[in-house]
Design a protein around this nucleic acid. Structure first.
Lengths: 209, 209
DNA sequence: GGGGCACTTTGATTCAAATCAAGTGCTCGC
DNA sequence: GCGAGCACTTGATTTGAATCAAAGTGCCCC
């Protein structure tokens, strides 16, 4: 399961340490590569160095819910219990700083803050998915991603329309239609399908409700 | 904001301590009473002694998402940051064990486990709301509640259809129709609107996927 | 440079749940 | 015991998003 990561560990001394400091290794993952699977033992946690990661859950019939995306600087991989309930995979070419079990125990104070933030994010996401319409969901998603990328006007989407749809509880077609509509109203502009310029940030923010 | 709680604190020595031990007080809340509001300072956390609590968020236009219900023995009230992002209110006549800030600091290890469990619950809930149809959502809700009440066949609902709808991202009408349909298939039986007998637990479980 | 493939967009139709609109029945206060 | 009000149920209709279907578009590899 961890074969790729374990054979390609390397020393790293250039990775930003925004949340947790200490000794670690950096592992590269190709786009689409699984980081952990449902049922795997939890014995590591991760910080995205470059690239992007999705954490998701599957229903037996294949329906998928992405519960979170993780961008550079963000931590993931800690869960309740001893085994993972979710899958994690690299969306694009990704490098991850990997922390071992010992490190997690030493740093339980930081982990608490991260767990509380994760809970808050998931609960905010519940409101979006449970009570907002398609346009509101996409607008909220774009704003969230924009802020997490530093708040500039240009937004790079590391994930596909399918990933976005599975995150927002929609279909790719609906996501695409909403994007087209926002483009039509000149709220956003597309350089290409994965690069969005936010033309009217206030209008976009107003759409979240 | 906490007036009712603060004037009615009383020593308690009979409340079960399933998660955290230590000195505390017990406060009674009438049905519908607010426990904390969005924006309130976070300086306490709570354990339900008797009754039930809902934690929810509101959109400016009044749409509401209940993010969690809390039954006897369960803790709530800890969030990221220094101020609440959610509202909490007693659903029925409720008694809460209240823990102060000092206690939360001393018990950060237990809090971590609770935060991780809370995150897992919220993420599981995301899958239900994002990717399951009305029947699946209601079935999952009934099973979850049943297990949290000890797993017997008879289920007492402390909350209204509106509360359930706001938890599941549905309307009261839809919740009611699903309940009627499950009753029609003899998967469940209703003693009254708030008391459900699970007649075919396996069939109910099969409906969740 | 061209073929194939994956991703995205667009269009037509269907469908599940929301909305709108009455009932029904239970609880509580008088 | 009786009426008012609220919670819940049921029915008719609408609607937003899903589904089904078919083009674009760009990219990689040969």
């Amino acid at each position: 399961m961890y074969a790729a990561a374990q054979t390609s560990f390397q020393q790293a001394d250039h990775v930003e340490r925004t949340q947790i400091s200490g000794p670690y290794l950096v592992a590269p993952y190709n786009a689409g590569r699984e980081i952990y699977a449902e049922g795997d033992l939890i014995d590591k946690c991760y910080q995205v160095s470059t690239g992007a990661v999705s954490v998701y859950r599957l229903l037996p019939d294949g329906r998928r819910q992405v519960v979170s995306f993780h961008l550079p600087g963000e931590m993931f991989g800690f869960e309740a219990g001893s085994n993972h309930s979710f899958f994690a995979e690299a969306i694009t070419e990704t490098k991850l700083a990997v922390f071992g079990r010992r490190h997690m125990q030493e740093r339980s104070r930081e982990l608490l803050a991260l767990a509380l933030t994760g809970m808050a994010r998931a609960q905010q996401h519940l409101l979006v998915i449970g009570r907002q319409c398609a346009v509101e969901r996409v607008a909220a998603f774009l704003i969230d991603l924009c802020e997490r990328q530093g708040g500039g006007r240009r937004l790079r989407l590391p994930m596909s329309r399918q990933d976005i749809a599975d995150y927002l509880g929609l279909t790719t077609e609906t996501v695409s239609r909403v994007v087209t509509k926002l483009k039509g109203r000149s709220v956003i502009a597309l350089r290409d399908a994965r690069t969005i310029d936010i033309v009217k940030p206030d209008a976009l923010r107003a759409l979240c409700n």
